[in-house]
Every structure is written in structure tokens, then in C-alpha cells.
């Protein structure tokens, strides 16, 4: 066998194994069953991507429904320059800690109940398609750092669950979570909630993430008429 043939064989083998591994980590087409029971007293670390504007409002409204003693610590992932989302998240943290008559949530260190992570935008509004691949790559690198590399080498561990509701940048976070799965590392459960504004047509991020996330949730039943995966439990925000 010549060298070229050998290399081809190796490449085909690697490609086949990669595809097999990818297939193994993809969620099943059936609605995922809860894996691993937790006790009432257990805690579950949570990360949420705040996609600015209406995305941030909806994500924080979803979070406001949760028991913060159970879901913590919380990591808010925001896009570069999106201070408005950061302030809204701080408002929610303050309101929740007042509700539970706890001390201030804004302590630092490993025991902090909440923290913020900033990643570059995958694509800015009106950005040229020429430079878009570079910002997407930068955004992906930052996502991999926060979800895969940093938990592996420096701790704290990756969050137990990652809540996504668009827009574009949440796709790169999903890819980073998949890299962890591919490598057999801890990856967050991925939960996507389509915007309340989407009645008959999924958003682009919805279409992209639908086959990848562990739970795909919409707020209007017509979006599931195509019979593909997803669930609707009515209006969540």
C-alpha cells in the first residue's frame, strides 16, 4: 500500500469515528427523559445567555420563576458592550435576594451566587459578511474557553444547565457545549426557549438549535405542526 492510500484510509477512519461520536452525543429524536434524580436539597448550577433587548427580557422573566436557592450559582453570559442586560440581571438578582431576605448577591470569589461572563458577538447587526467569520470564530473561542477549557483546567466546573433563547451568539455556545460532549467532558444540559413573539415561524436560532438542544420549547403550538421535535406548554413569559 502506498503512502497516499494509507493516509486516505486513516482519514476515512478518523472521519467515520468522528461522525459516530457526533451521532452518539446528539440528542435522541424523542423528548429527552430526565437523567439523574436530584434531592430537594440539591443545587444545580445554571448559566443563561442574555441576547439583549427582548431576548434578555424574556430570559430574565423565565429565570424569575425559579427557586434561586436551588438554581445556583448563576452565570450570566452577555455580549460585549451589553451593559443594559447586565443591569437588568443585577436588578433581578437584587429583587430575588430581597425576596429571600438574603445578603447582597454581588460578592466575589468562588462562593458568589452569581457572576457575569462576557463574550464577543458572533455577528453584529449590519456587519459585513466578509468580516463575520472572524467575529464568529472569536466568539466561538470565547465560548469554548468558558464552557470547555476553563472548567477543565481551572474550575469551577461547567454549569449543569444552560438556558438559551437567541439570537446568533447562543449558537456558538451550543457548539462549545458539543465540543465538551464530543471530548467526553461535562457539558450543561441545553434548553432552548423560542421567543413569545414567534407564533408561526421559528427564528433562525430556533431552526439551528432545534436538533441540537436537549429541550426545545416553543410558546405557540403552531410552531410544532411540522411534527419535528419540540414541546409547547403555553406562554412561559
Amino acid at each position: 500500500m502506498d503512502t497516499l492510500g494509507f493516509l486516505t484510509l486513516i482519514s476515512v477512519l478518523i472521519a467515520a469515528l468522528t461522525l459516530l461520536r457526533l451521532y452518539a452525543v446528539l440528542p435522541s429524536t424523542q423528548t429527552a427523559k430526565p437523567s439523574g434524580l436530584r434531592e430537594d436539597s440539591d443545587v444545580c448550577s445554571l448559566a443563561v445567555f442574555l441576547g439583549s433587548g427582548g431576548h434578555t427580557s424574556e430570559a430574565l422573566r423565565l429565570l424569575s420563576a425559579l427557586n434561586f436557592n436551588r438554581y445556583g450559582p448563576r452565570t450570566y453570559i452577555i455580549s460585549e458592550g451589553d451593559t443594559l442586560s447586565m443591569h437588568k440581571a443585577m436588578d433581578l438578582e437584587c429583587a430575588k435576594s430581597t425576596e429571600a431576605s438574603q445578603t447582597t448577591p454581588f460578592t466575589s470569589g468562588p462562593d458568589a451566587p452569581c457572576s457575569f461572563v462576557v463574550i464577543p458577538r458572533a455577528r453584529r447587526v449590519h456587519q459585513s459578511f466578509l468580516t463575520a467569520p472572524f467575529s464568529a470564530a472569536l466568539s466561538l473561542a470565547a465560548s469554548i474557553w468558558h464552557l470547555t477549557a476553563s472548567p477543565l483546567f481551572f474550575g469551577p466546573p461547567a454549569p449543569d444547565v444552560l438556558l438559551l433563547n437567541g439570537p446568533g451568539t447562543c449558537f456558538v455556545l451550543c457548539i462549545a457545549a458539543y465540543l465538551s460532549r464530543f471530548l467526553g467532558l461535562k457539558s450543561p444540559k441545553l434548553i432552548y426557549v423560542e421567543s413569545f413573539a414567534r407564533v408561526r415561524h421559528l427564528s433562525l436560532s430556533g431552526k439551528l438549535l432545534r436538533p441540537l438542544v436537549d429541550r426545545f420549547i416553543v410558546q405557540w403550538p403552531d410552531l410544532l405542526q411540522d411534527g419535528k421535535r419540540g414541546e409547547c406548554r403555553g406562554w412561559l413569559v
Binding site: 437523567s35 434524580l37 430537594d40 420563576a65 438554581y71 426557549v193
Partner: peptide, 24 residues
């Protein structure tokens, strides 16, 4: 218009994360 009902998402996430015996 119905007021905000947080129980729907809370139950959904509790279920997904395995808190199915939760009092909530």
C-alpha cells in the same frame, strides 16, 4: 390577558434537572 405564570417554566426545568419529587 393572563398574568405571568412562573410555574410552567419552573416545573419544566425542575423536571428536566431531576427534581421530580419536588414540593414545588
Amino acid at each position: 390577558f393572563p398574568q405571568f405564570d412562573g410555574s410552567r417554566f419552573r416545573e419544566l426545568l425542575d423536571e428536566e434537572m431531576g427534581f421530580i419529587h419536588s414540593r414545588d
